[in-house]
Simulated scan of single mutants.
Amino acid sequence: MGFRFIVAALALLLGAGLGPARAQELVQKQVFEAGAYRTRNGGTIANVRIGYQTMGTLNEARDNAVLITHFFSGNSHAFGRLAAGGPVGYWDAIIGPGRAIDTNRYFVVSSDTLTNLNVPDVNTVTTGPSSINPDTGRPYGLTFPVVSMRDFIEVQKRLLDHLGVRRLALVAGASMGALQVMEWAAAYPEMIDRVMPVIAHDVDPWNLAWLDVWEAPIRMDPNWRQGDYYGQGRQPPLAGLAEALRIVTLQSRDRGWARGLGMRAAEGNDPARNMMDRFAIEKWLDDAATARARTSDANAFLYLVRANQLFFNEYETPEAAFARSQARWLVVPSPGDRVFPIEGVREMVDTLRRVGRPVAVAEVGGPLGHLNGVAGMAPLAERIRVFLAE
């Protein structure tokens, strides 16, 4: 689920048809200084900073806002361009002037999460384990407080208060972003008209175990040093992080994508003769994950995993959380999803209906499995437009 890979792919898929008007849709990355923050489990973060971007204008009633929450390896760049000629945001096909989420009508906000994976990226602003602890003058490492999905929501709520938002016409997001959508619906039910969780269902024990599999290679890398690898002369656990990202990258795709690489050997390799030689799909995954690891932080990966595992941790059951919602729901699954299988989405929809929530379902198709909900949303534009008008 590499963010840079997705942005590059979207640029190739969408760039040729954007036209001059879209090319001028520049957005500015801004920084919100949230100040000291006490986490839901009682930890203290001295100074929270997150990046964000907006498009559109908040109306006088301050009730036309839309919040976009991002996926595990993403950041706030969901729409527009951060620089002339640069790549468009991952949901640019459905967000912007005249599009499904019309920025001529809505004030759209998207922010970086706490403990964001993309720490080395200049277009990401986050506070997490690589940030400097003012009490020690050194990076927090694993002394950074554990944060939950609800903590992401509370920091976003501070940002919205700062921007003057009183009500949300829609909260929408894909994958981990969809988990944030669900947390929003339970935490602030009176503030939200509609929610659109894409390619996710409530976290179950299966997801919990897979998240542990994702992070295991990092903990096994000797360079990880229990999270204390930021010191001078120490090497980050790039091998473990790359292997973790390789697992995520494969699980977030589907068989249709893999067919494109086939059963062939990598160029110059012969796996039938040499045990060290690679197949093309193995080489592709190795190269993609290794490149992605260089632009990521291993401890941030672990903190994001834990935040996902702590989804809905303040409620006795998911049903109790869903029962708090007062919003209309549009749930968007991908039939080939290997991260949040569609049968789990159907179970969630049944729960929503059982607690009396108005809920509709619109599937997103394509060969990318889980990633269809990031890179393949354009065909659902009219359905989203109708949902916003209901």
Rank of each mutant, 00 (worst) to 15 (best):
V88R: 02
Q326R: 10
P134E: 11
V386P: 00
V198T: 05
A298S: 14
N223E: 15
W284E: 15
A280E: 09
T44A: 12
A21F: 15
A291H: 11
S175V: 02
A242R: 08
P139M: 07
A288S: 14
V248R: 13
N313G: 01
G262S: 07
V7Y: 01
Y140K: 01
S111T: 13
G227M: 08
S148E: 09
E319T: 03
A23F: 02
L117Y: 05
M196S: 00
V119W: 14
P145W: 00
T57N: 13
E215V: 14
D297F: 09
L208N: 12
S131N: 04
I132D: 02
L261C: 12
A83C: 05
L208G: 06
P20D: 07
L14Q: 05
T115A: 12
W284P: 03
P358S: 06
V155Q: 03
R138E: 03
R150C: 07
Q235M: 15
V108K: 04
E33M: 06
N372Y: 03
A378C: 03
V331N: 12
G256A: 03
D350W: 00
N123K: 14
M348W: 10
A16Q: 12
P189E: 02
S76L: 04
L160W: 05
K157Y: 07
P236A: 06
R354K: 14
W91I: 00
A266K: 01
P129W: 04
M182A: 09
A327P: 04
G260P: 11
F3I: 00
I281K: 11
R40F: 11
R150G: 05
A272N: 02
L67F: 10
A375F: 08
W257V: 14
A93K: 03
R219I: 08
G19H: 02
H162R: 08
V339D: 10
V359R: 08
P236E: 10
A239S: 10
G86Q: 06
V48I: 00
W206Q: 07
V66I: 14
N299I: 13
G260Q: 04
R338E: 15
A360M: 13
I384S: 15
M176I: 11
A65T: 13
P197Q: 04
G128Y: 11
T115G: 09
D63F: 10
D254Q: 15
V349S: 06
L12K: 03
M348Q: 15
H162K: 06
G89I: 00
M220K: 09
F311D: 01
Q156T: 02
A360D: 11
G80W: 02
Q235V: 15
V331Y: 04
D228Q: 15
T126L: 09
R324C: 04
R385F: 00
D350A: 12
S110M: 09
A244G: 13
V119Y: 12
A327S: 07
A298R: 08
R246L: 12
P20W: 02
H370N: 11
A78L: 06
N274W: 06
